[in-house]
């Protein structure tokens, strides 16, 4: 009963917010942002704990599994392009991973945050399930890692298009690699606004950075911490 209430209200709020975003196509009316704010406000006002919301919410979250599997479809459609730019893609993902690890580590050391928080933040650019696994292996706090992963995703989804227009990034390959490896699935699903090629390079990059990140993060933590 409670489960179906949170599923139905999440879907209805999301669909209304999609409508709102169509009417006012500004970045800050992005449906995931507005829906999350409304739901959080609602839960806080009605004093409903997260665990109760998740009784239904986890079914929606569970659909992320087949949704990520579905990214094989654009990837299949664009495979020729992927092969054509294989060196760019591989080196791009490595650059993204290394620059992400070094920048987050440097910032948190400058701000003098605890070792545990630094370990929690290191896997922020990898897709949620892998990030949580990595966080656990290196000694971070997995559920907090999941929240930071969402913030990284949001940053890309919300500000990615601004970054791309300032940097004059006109290539689908570059946008896909940057978004997939910096902002995983959340950023990648926003690439629908550009083209199918953007989307497929993005999904390839998010998959590859999950693999590369799962290997590099523990090595980085071992060397620097």
């Amino acid at each position: 009963m409670q489960a179906s209430i949170s599923i139905i209200s999440t879907v209805i709020i999301f669909l209304l917010m999609v409508k709102l975003h169509k009417r006012f196509p500004y970045q800050f009316f992005m449906p995931i942002l507005t829906s999350s704010i409304i739901i959080i406000a609602g839960l806080l006002l009605l004093n409903i704990p997260y665990e109760v919301y998740m009784e239904g919410g986890r079914y929606l979250q569970h659909l992320l599994g087949p949704a990520v599997v579905a990214l094989a479809y654009p990837l299949y459609n664009q495979w020729e392009m992927v092969l054509k730019y294989k060196y760019t893609i591989l080196s791009g993902i490595l650059i993204a991973m290394v620059s992400g690890l070094i920048s987050i580590y440097t910032l948190l050391v400058i701000f003098k945050l605890d070792k545990e928080l630094i370990l929690t933040a290191l896997p922020k650019s990898i897709t949620t399930p892998v990030a949580m696994q990595v966080s656990e292996t290196i000694g971070g706090i997995p559920p907090l890692t999941a929240v930071l992963v969402m913030i990284a995703g949001f940053t890309g989804a919300l500000l990615g298009s601004v970054v791309f227009s300032i940097g004059k990034i006109e290539s689908s390959i570059s946008r896909g690699i940057a978004m997939g490896s910096a902002s995983h699935g959340v950023g990648t699903s926003k690439l629908v606004d550009y083209s199918e090629l953007d989307l497929s390079i993005g999904s390839l990059s998010l998959g590859l950075s999950a693999v590369i990140g799962a290997i590099l993060c523990p090595i980085f933590a071992y060397i620097f911490m």
Partner: peptide, 15 residues
């Protein structure tokens, strides 16, 4: 599913 992917990211966001 790809079109609705954002919806599935809402629950972890609420975390």
């Amino acid at each position: 599913l790809i079109g609705f992917m954002m919806l599935f990211f809402i629950p972890p966001m609420i975390g």
